[in-house]
């Protein structure tokens, strides 16, 4: 089980990113625990400005903008 944290305030790009991560995990058969961090205060205090940002197992793998499917594959591998 991989812990994936998604930092976002509910914007469209964030929602698309969430769906991409869930779909990719399902396609690859990887079990993930997706935690959404949507409180702006918490987002900033953890050092994030550009959203959506993604943290996998405690390490930032993405900050700002829409990730590509290939990016997500690398994170979940």
């Amino acid at each position: 089980m991989k812990k994936v944290e998604l930092f976002g305030t509910g914007c469209r790009t964030c929602a698309v990113t969430e769906k991409m991560i869930r779909d990719k995990a399902a396609a690859l058969g990887v079990q993930i625990e997706l935690v959404k961090v949507d409180d702006p205060a918490e987002i900033v205090s953890r050092g994030v400005i550009s959203i959506p940002a993604v943290m996998v197992e405690g390490t930032f793998v993405h900050k700002g903008g829409l990730p590509s499917g290939r990016d997500i594959e690398t994170w979940l591998a």
């Binding site: 305030t9 914007c11 702006p40 400005i49 550009s50 959203i51 700002g64």
Partner: peptide, 9 residues
């Protein structure tokens, strides 16, 4: 910047 980032910014 994407307007969704304006809050954290």
């Amino acid at each position: 910047f994407c307007s969704c980032s304006s809050i954290p910014l």
